[in-house]
């Protein structure tokens, strides 16, 4: 496939890349919550500015962020349309024989779109700048207090890291199988929806078979190397909170305070 996938780690070096994954996770998680507290133009602008600063600090091309937006563009369009058509309060903005658009509808549509965009920016920032290994190590460490209530933090993190690890592999495999079936004359591009979906059967079946084969191989390989869950396992790279991480959390505190001060 000729494009970068959503949420793929972009291995370059930047201030954001070097941060501890735990502080990034906490920061992004709190930011995502903060988005729902914004309620006027000033607060949304503030959040957008923070997001754009993050994009600049990540030193990742804006194009890649735009490309990840492509994924949610339909969701945005759909909800926008939904609000424009069905929200009926406030003064009338536009009146046509088939459709009347109200002020409140436009407002809701704008809010939802900006929220989606903000969510995507912060989620992309985390995924683009954190390697899958860091991400799972960070999550495991953050979730480990839950072990007291029998939450399998290590297993959960391991499952996640395996899933993340295999996304590119599965993607490459899909690409290869699609090519192979195309070469046998399979047509994925024409016909109605039903025919197009049916055309993917020759791709899905081999893909599923190879996933099961891979899962089995991986399980065998892990067992053969003595993997026995998280008990007694030590780590080569120990996560450590540095000054930059504290700076990040201070930044968050400032943004949050500013936001609560600016909101109506």
């Amino acid at each position: 496939m000729n494009s970068v996938m959503i949420g793929q780690y972009i291995p370059i070096d930047s201030w954001l890349h070097r941060l501890d994954p735990r502080s990034k996770c906490i920061f992004v998680f709190c930011m995502l919550i903060l988005i729902f507290f914004a309620n006027n133009v000033e607060t949304y602008t503030l959040l957008l500015l923070v997001g754009l600063m993050g994009v600049a600090l990540s030193r990742i091309s804006v194009l890649l962020f735009l490309r990840s937006m492509k994924l949610i563009i339909w969701m945005i369009l759909f909800t926008t349309l939904f609000h424009l058509i069905f929200t009926q309060s406030g003064s009338i903005v536009l009146q046509t024989p088939i459709l009347t658009i109200y002020e409140e509808g436009v407002r809701q549509a704008a809010i939802i779109s900006v929220r989606f965009i903000l969510l995507m920016i912060f989620a992309s920032l985390l995924m683009f700048t954190t390697s899958p290994i860091d991400l799972t190590d960070g999550l495991e460490s953050l979730l480990s207090p839950l072990r007291r209530w029998r939450f399998p933090a290590h297993e959960f993190a391991m499952m996640m890291s395996i899933a993340l690890r295999f996304i590119p592999t599965l993607w490459a495999e899909t690409d290869k199988i699609i090519k192979a079936q195309k070469a046998r004359g399979a047509d994925f591009e024409s016909g109605n929806v039903y025919r197009r979906v049916k055309a993917y059967i020759p791709v899905l079946i081999p893909l599923m078979i190879s996933s099961f084969r891979r899962a089995e191989d991986l399980a065998t390989a892990m067992e053969a190397r003595g993997y026995a869950g998280g008990v007694g396992r030590t780590k080569l790279r120990v996560l450590s909170i540095r000054r930059a991480d504290i700076l990040l959390l201070v930044c968050f505190a400032i943004v949050a305070t500013a936001l609560f001060w600016m909101r109506k």
């Binding site: 290869k176 199988i177 090519k179 192979a180 079936q181 195309k182 070469a183 046998r184 004359g185 399979a186 047509d187 059967i201 020759p202 079946i205 081999p206 078979i209 190879s210």
Partner: peptide, 30 residues
């Protein structure tokens, strides 16, 4: 593409039909 046939590396990974005959017949059917 119909004039070009490709056998990829490990082509056995792309089999999908219920029977051998159906799988071989997939190309000619297309």
């Amino acid at each position: 593409r119909k004039k070009v046939g490709v056998v990829f590396q490990y082509p056995e990974h792309q089999l999908f039909e219920e029977t051998v005959a159906k799988d071989i017949g997939f190309g000619p059917k297309n």
